[in-house]
Amino acid sequence: MIKLSKKVEGNLCTIYVNGILDYATMEPFNKEIQAIEEGTKKVIINFAELEFIDSTGVGSIINLVHEANTKHFEVELDGVSDFIHEILETIGVFQIMETLQKEGQ
């Protein structure tokens, strides 16, 4: 189960993810990502209420990071628990974010 909510303030878009981001729930998350408006300069994904993420969920995050690099907006992951942080760190998500953001500068 996943619950999503979005807050837009100027060119900052924050998406709050509550529940599980996995194979069964990625569709609404991907739709929310696709609906990010043109002109957005920064997207914050708030994971404070994220309970679990599987490889498909991680794939959605990586695709967002690549899209941000192409469309020139910044992505930040906020409120990441130690457990989720370890998963993202092991897979290399933070390293991709760092590399692509350096390239984009």
């Binding site: 990586i62 760190e89 092991t90 897979i91 290399g92 390293q95 991709i96 590399t99 692509l100």
Partner: peptide, 9 residues
Amino acid sequence: VKGVMLGGL
């Protein structure tokens, strides 16, 4: 030893 997943970069 760390490294990015295949298909990442």
